[in-house]
Amino acid sequence: MSNSKLYKGSLNTIILKLLNEHDKMYGYEITQKVKALTQGELNITEGALYPALHKLEAEGLLDVEVAKVDNRLRKYYKLTESGTKETVNKLEELAEYIKTMQTLMNPKLA
């Protein structure tokens, strides 16, 4: 992960959220999607992305599908049933975290 250590803790949530919105995605596609959505602000490196994807797969939150594309094999990730449930939990956790941080950083707005 590039810009900030603050994003690191949210990487799994970012991946789960993106996969929740798309049927299936491959690693490079995820990095490009994040880059596009954040207008280049957040740049997920392969060194951070793939370990996270593999960990989520090992935990049974992601399923894998392999397809032949442009004469090479491409590994697609998609949410499992428990992955979909976990996405809801993670998003709620993150919303709660953002709310708490806002209260701390800017008490007047809270």
Binding site: T45, E46, G47, Y50, P51, H54, K55, E57, A58
Partner: peptide
């Protein structure tokens, strides 16, 4: 630019395989 990162990813992948 990226070789070191890719090699470290390789080690992480093996850890994930063991965990699985």
């Amino acid at each position: 630019k990226n070789k070191a990162r890719l090699l470290s990813d390789n080690k992480q992948f093996l850890k994930s395989a063991d965990r699985k």
